[in-house]
């Protein structure tokens, strides 16, 4: 059990340290790298509790996909300057919004942790380990039977968000040549080859 707690403190210290570094480090790229470290150590904590499915999904979804997009955005846009201006610049308009969000999150955490303290048998982490089936099976059995409606609703919300994001950023570009595979394949010599009479000392004008 000592080993278990040593590992627990190891991963949680890394998680807390890296989450602090995410908000304090000056370079945006370093922030994202620390965010990735944070995700990984939280995933390790999940696995230690016995919630291996959640830990792996955290790794796949957040580290494997979301953080890659973060890195993309940070590398492509010049976010570094913006972050500098947040720290040094005079008009920090983002601070009130950030404060509201963080206070809300703090309240939510208080409710969750307080509820746990108030009624201890709401959810005990040990029940995950003791049961014989793996927690992947348990999650599946609950998620697709009792909570199917919420599951589907969450899926629809995500789909709508995706469609919305695509619609917002979509712009039809003019003057771009697109390759049409059907047209290419359905070409035959009679439609593809054209014989043009040329006069000497004059070029051919081809309109496409």
């Amino acid at each position: 059990m000592i080993i278990h707690s040593i590992f627990f403190y190891f991963f949680s210290v890394i998680a807390i340290f890296s989450s602090l570094m995410v908000i304090t480090s000056r370079s945006t790229i370093n922030s994202v790298f620390f965010l990735i470290l944070d995700f990984i150590s939280v995933g390790c904590l999940f696995i230690m509790v016995g919630a291996e499915f959640l830990g792996m999904i955290l790794l796949i979804v957040y580290v494997g996909a979301v953080a890659v997009l973060f890195l993309f955005v940070v590398m492509m846009l010049n976010v570094a300057e913006q972050k500098q201006s947040w720290f040094i610049g005079k008009k920090s308009t983002h601070i009130p919004t950030g404060l509201i969000v963080s206070v809300l999150i703090l309240l939510e955490l208080l409710v969750v942790v307080g509820g746990w303290k108030y009624k201890e048998n709401v959810m005990s982490s040990s029940s995950l380990i003791i049961s014989e089936t793996s927690n992947t099976h348990q999650l599946g059995l609950v998620m697709y039977t009792d909570y199917i409606l919420y599951f589907q609703l969450a899926g629809i919300v995500l789909l709508l968000a995706m469609i919305g994001a695509i619609l917002l950023t979509f712009r039809e570009r003019v003057g771009v040549k697109k390759q049409s595979y059907i047209n290419q394949i359905s070409r035959n010599p009679s439609t593809a080859v054209e014989l043009v009479e040329t006069k000497s000392n004059q070029g051919v004008k081809i309109d496409d």
Binding site: I29, I36, E52, F53, M56, I57, L59, I60, V63, G64, A65, V68, L71, M75, S134, T136
Partner: peptide, 24 residues
């Protein structure tokens, strides 16, 4: 382990970081 496939998938999806880090 119980979630062997997920582990493989997770690790192979992390592989992209080496490349992004090197390139950047």
């Amino acid at each position: 382990i119980n979630v062997g496939v997920l582990y493989l998938f997770a690790v192979s999806s992390l592989g992209v970081y080496g490349i992004i880090m090197g390139g950047w």
